[in-house]
Amino acid sequence: MMDWTDRHCRHFHRLMTGRAMLYTEMVTAAAVIHGPRDRLLAYGQAEHPIALQLGGSEPADLAQAVQLAQPFGYDEVNLNVGCPSDRVQSGCFGAVLMERPGLVAQCVAAMQAETDAPVTVKCRIGVDDQDPEIVLPEFIETVAGAGVTHFIIHARKAWLKGLSPKENREIPPLDYDLVLRMKRQFPQLTICINGGVAALDHARDLLDQGVDGVMIGRAAYHDPAAVLMGADALWGDEVGRDAFDVVANMRPYIADHLAAGGRLHQITRHMLGLFHARPGARAWRRVLSTGASCDGAGLEVVEEALAQVRAPDADGL
């Protein structure tokens, strides 16, 4: 979710669920060490519980990045061993690390030494010509041996040669059964599942089959109301929010951002899917998309967009 789940997106999503763990964009260890650390790591306290997602393959660099992130108080630190992007392959991290479980074990051991927060691993079931039935349990056993007790498994292979990142999210077949078997094989571990889950009913079904959690990415971004507003019900909480409440609660956050010199589209680009599949949704998206990028755009653009959704003759979806 690089370039997607920034702090504005996470604040917006947190208004729809108080329980779900939110993850940062994947940040490389090198960026934390050498880049604009505050901009990369800062977040609002309302975002808790929140996990910092790191990418890297050098144990010492990852340890230093975790040490530098420690004062920010993340609830979890996650090592991404699942991203198939060319940008991360060239740096020898992301999904390519599925081929080097011993190195992953060294990385997480170094990270754990620098934080009291849980260190978790997000991975694929395998890459390229690997046999997931063999590779995945060996990977889990090796990395768990270094002290990791929580794995988020994207139930697809990653094809590092021949498929784009987008194709890697769609073409390799899903193998939920393998991930469910991993939970039975390693009952002492927290095993969460990721990949292809687009609705809460599907997530609930997977939870009923035995996994400990479900990670939802793009569906939660493109249709946040449908996915996130009912999420707390999975914990038995009452859910009384609606999309209009979310817009109302975003107003002071947007106003503060604008007063600090920020631009409207930096926030509203994450809000385009809020009224997905509702009357007026297309007009909501159009007004925000065209108006929020204009110089001096302010809350009046949000109000204009909201009026399109409320209009009784609002155009189609």
Rank of each mutant, 00 (worst) to 15 (best):
F151L: 01
G147T: 02
E303T: 12
V104G: 00
R181D: 14
Q185E: 12
H150N: 14
D315Q: 14
G213D: 13
L288S: 00
K122D: 04
D242E: 05
D129R: 15
S164Y: 02
Q308V: 09
L79Q: 02
F72K: 05
A63T: 06
A226V: 06
N80M: 11
H154D: 01
R19H: 13
T17L: 10
D6G: 11
G316R: 12
K157W: 10
G162I: 09
N249D: 15
D128N: 14
T149D: 08
Q209Y: 03
Y221E: 01
Y74L: 08
R204L: 07
I191W: 00
I267E: 06
H154P: 03
G44L: 13
V301Q: 09
A42P: 03
Y74A: 09
N249Y: 02
K183N: 05
L52D: 05
W235D: 13
M250S: 07
V81P: 00
A233T: 09
A297D: 13
M271Q: 10
D129K: 14
E170I: 07
I33S: 03
D116I: 10
Y74Q: 12
F275C: 00
L136Y: 06
H48F: 11
L288A: 08
V66T: 15
A283E: 15
K183M: 04
G162N: 11
G296C: 08
V309N: 00
H11V: 15
A281G: 06
T17Y: 09
V127Q: 02
I134E: 04
E304N: 13
D315K: 13
L160V: 11
M182E: 13
G240M: 05
L299V: 03
R204H: 12
Y253M: 09
M98K: 03
A30I: 05
G82I: 02
D232A: 14
A233D: 02
E300S: 15
L207E: 10
P172N: 07
H11D: 11
Q89N: 12
M21H: 09
A225K: 03
G102E: 15
A225Y: 15
M26N: 04
R100K: 08
V227I: 15
A260Y: 10
I191Y: 01
L274C: 08
V211W: 03
A259L: 06
R282I: 11
T142D: 01
L288M: 11
R251S: 00
G195L: 04
G35M: 09
T142H: 04
D232L: 14
P36F: 06
A144S: 10
D86S: 13
D295K: 12
P165L: 10
H257E: 11
H257Q: 10
I216P: 03
